[in-house]
Design a protein around this nucleic acid. Structure first.
Length: 273
DNA sequence: AAGATTATCAACCGCCCGAGA
DNA sequence: CTCTCGGGCGGTTGATAATCT
């Protein structure tokens, strides 16, 4: 029998999102917030399922996303958190404001795994590969910390919390960091200014980028003839969302930047979801 | 230059869980 | 208590880009 699918998939679009679809989703979320993902595609005029919209928003369109490659220190932090938490990517991602679980998972699977193997470490156990068999033999007598028992949530205790967060931020608590970022997004900070700062940053990046050799390919990505299926990878700058918007909407009135400045605080609840 | 291989990452799938009826 | 629904999560796939031969 099985469950019904999350949505009626007949006639729904799949695959890469177009800029137009992104605009529709962004515009809808900013104007209406998120109450029910299932309803979003219909209300936003998208031929996508709610899950797909949610994923697109969380992994790509959220304004607070930090894009660009993960630094080596971030990698180290991920490794240590993975040793503690296992494949609980969302939990690991919660220690990296602006990073998504998908991003961290991908990074783990494509890079960190290899890096650990090169170091002679098992990516699963985080122990030397040569000793894996021996470790397995003794595993029954010791508690494994790399595959945590899902029945007992391994929330860091005050001690482990300190131990963990020191590697996140030497002079700050990870929770505080998250709360700080949350407050930044939802609290007293004017989101319009936040966005305008990012816009300014994006403009600065673009200004230098225009003079770079890869600007031609960047220009191509803006060519209306290529406005159908597009790949963000083709834009070879460390692009944040606002930057992409600048790239794609600078001459568009689909989304007015002025509108962000007018957002009331009570309209910002969606950023805290 | 062209084809083959590898790397990257956005997106999808299916399961699980919690909330609410 | 049971069932349904929606959101969230982790695993996986597939398209594209980058690199190699």
């Amino acid at each position: 029998m099985g469950r019904q699918p999350c949505c009626d998939k007949v006639g729904l679009k799949r695959g890469p999102w177009t800029i137009e679809e992104d605009h529709k989703l962004i515009n809808f979320v900013l104007n209406n917030g998120i109450h029910c993902w299932r309803a979003v595609p219909k209300l936003a005029g998208l031929l996508r399922c709610g899950k797909s919209c949610r994923l697109r928003w969380i992994n790509y369109l959220r304004p607070d996303l930090k894009r660009g490659a993960l630094s080596e220190s971030e990698e180290d932090q991920i490794i240590q958190l993975h040793a503690r938490l296992g494949n609980r990517w969302s939990k690991i991602a919660s220690y990296f404001p602006g990073r998504t679980d998908n991003e961290i998972k991908n990074h783990w699977n494509t890079r960190i795994k290899k890096r650990l193997k090169l170091l002679g470490l098992d990516p699963v156990t985080h122990k030397p590969i040569d000793h894996k068999i021996d470790e397995d033999k003794t595993k029954t007598t010791t508690t494994s910390d790399h595959e945590p028992d899902s029945s007992k949530e391994q929330e860091p205790t005050s001690d482990t919390q300190n131990e963990t967060t020191t590697l996140i931020n030497t002079d700050n608590d990870g929770t505080d960091l998250l709360l700080h970022n949350y407050e930044m997004l939802c609290g007293s900070l004017d989101v319009g200014n936040l966005w305008m700062n990012q816009l300014q940053e994006a403009i600065n990046i673009n200004t230098s980028y225009i003079n770079s050799p890869s600007f031609n390919s960047f220009e191509d990505s803006l060519n209306p003839s290529s406005m159908g299926e597009y790949s963000p990878n083709s834009i070879q700058v460390e692009d944040s969302l606002p930057q992409q918007w600048v790239d794609s909407t600078v001459d568009s009135n689909i989304l007015s930047w002025d509108g962000f400045n007018q957002l009331e605080e009570d309209e910002l609840f969606l950023f805290g979801q």
